[in-house]
């Protein structure tokens, strides 16, 4: 196992992460998949909302905002 995995919610703004694990099940997992979040997908942390939550990410060309509750369930390898 790679020890460099961090939750997506903790990926610093402006950096790129590669999805290595989806720690969700059921409907939430299917929603993630529909966003194109499969293994080895590159995700860039783009910007924080005024309150710092949610955070917007670039996922396969689209900009998607996720709350930390969701984003922390995606483990990424920091590039």
């Amino acid at each position: 196992m790679n020890n460099n995995l961090v939750p997506l919610s903790e990926l610093p703004i402006g950096s790129l992460g590669i999805v290595k694990k989806l720690a969700v099940e059921g409907a939430a997992r299917r929603r993630m998949l529909d966003l194109g979040l499969i293994l080895d997908t590159a995700v860039e942390s783009l910007l924080k909302s005024p309150a710092g939550d949610p955070i917007a990410y670039r996922i396969r060309g689209a900009v998607i905002a996720l709350r930390p509750e969701e984003a922390k369930k995606l483990l990424v390898e920091v590039r």
């Binding site: 929603r31 949610p54 689209a62 709350r67």
Partner: peptide, 9 residues
């Protein structure tokens, strides 16, 4: 609160 994903076009 439920899951939230919002696209910023």
């Amino acid at each position: 609160p439920s899951a939230f994903a919002l696209e910023l076009p």
